[in-house]
Nucleic acid binder design. Structure first.
Lengths: 220, 220
DNA sequence: ATGTCAATAAATATCGATATTTTCAAATCT
DNA sequence: AGATTTGAAAATATCGATATTTATTGACAT
């Protein structure tokens, strides 16, 4: 039996599809923090066998979005104020490091990618794909660091933080500050090659967002 | 059919057994860096089905000891001088942070665990379980940081570094310096509560080891 | 000889069917 | 009544069998 999926399009692998779906569901809170993740349920929901689901959950363990308890299945990683604060702390430390490394090795090619991703982010403000563009901008800032593990950590921590944004306000309501101006500051300093200013702007951006989110996270 | 294993002992789960075996095999170089990891081979070698092997490999992806290429299987993470240097950089940064946090919250209970793990490590010098005791000592130093993700990163990075020790000299030959004295310095400063001294001693320990290893890693 | 393409072989990915373990609740004993 | 044991019921973990995909080999045309 060949798997001429819905739209006739050829997907990659079932495991990858499951990984992406489950990741998204956890990030936006569709699968709430701390909830037990039952294979049978997910299997039915995603319309595939148990093997790809198990494997996807194992992979999500890497990202600290899922916890695995031997012999007792999986659950969505719990959320807590302490966890949020630890993420913020690690993020500021590691992104600062990565940004400085990135800038120290600045090339025209990197600057061009930065200009492009900044432009796309501005253009997509308000759109439902803004989230992706926003992450892309931040990761592009770090992408020239020549330290792949460091970048991986930053990407992981970025994702973990997304979840708290949704927890705080269902994904909305964080446009209250002038985020665009903050991004502009980071971007300008980065292109200008002023590492101190870029770092200060980036950290300030994260700390302001962090402080705001903390006020919204009463239920933790 | 019940699985009355060899010694009649009841293990935990096949997945966990596979995870531990494969992890060890990669760390000591029995499965060389960069090598393709074929399910069928490993399945036969570990005497179990394909599912636990696949799941264990997925979990090892978390630890950055295995790479997964969609639709194309798994391979042991490649080793390189650049990777070694990145590990060293991240390790010094993160362990420094964790050690300071740990010490800032020092309690008698933590000090006691530290004394104990230091004692055990000294006692096991030369033994084949020294490696475990050594890791245990270093992790105990950090274990009071109240930052679980940070500790997890440190533990991961520690393991990744082990592999380079084996690559450098088959696991031997790194006793040439007076390692015991270096550990003693770290330990004394930590118990004394002198964070600056402890941090300096710890970083020096890692940098000396790192510099030594680098001389031995010609083949990368 | 050399590069392309088809046929074959090998390996991965996935499913469906069980065996094992854990969980939960009712029944039993003190 | 309260604690403990026992037995379904549910869920996880694992196996063995296929389907799918990727890698390899050898024929064929240039």
């Amino acid at each position: 039996m060949n798997m001429m999926d819905e739209t006739g399009g050829r997907e990659t692998s079932a495991t990858r599809a499951a990984y992406l779906s489950l990741r998204e569901m956890i990030l936006v809170g569709e699968l709430p923090a701390g909830q037990k993740l039952k294979i049978e349920q997910l299997r039915a929901r995603l319309n595939m066998g148990a093997s790809p689901v198990r494997e996807a959950l194992s992979l999500l363990t890497s990202d600290m979005l899922v916890e695995r308890i031997d012999q007792r299945g999986f659950k969505a990683a719990p959320a807590s104020l302490a966890n949020f604060e630890e993420i913020l702390m690690l993020r500021t430390t590691l992104e600062d490091m990565a940004l400085r490394k990135s800038m120290a090795r600045a090339t025209p090619e990197w600057e061009e990618r930065l200009v492009l991703s900044h432009h796309k982010m501005k253009r997509l403000a308000g759109s439902d794909t803004f989230e992706d563009a926003h992450k892309s901008f931040h990761m592009t800032l770090l992408s020239n660091s020549d330290a792949p593990m460091l970048e991986r950590y930053c990407s992981q921590l970025y994702d973990l933080n997304i979840r708290y944004r949704y927890l705080a306000a269902g994904g909305e309501g964080y446009q209250s500050r002038d985020i665009a101006a903050e991004h502009e500051d980071i971007f300008d300093a980065a292109v200008r090659g002023d590492a101190e200013a870029a770092s200060a702007a980036l950290l300030s951006h994260y700390r302001l967002t962090g402080a705001y989110l903390k006020t919204q996270l009463g239920g933790l």
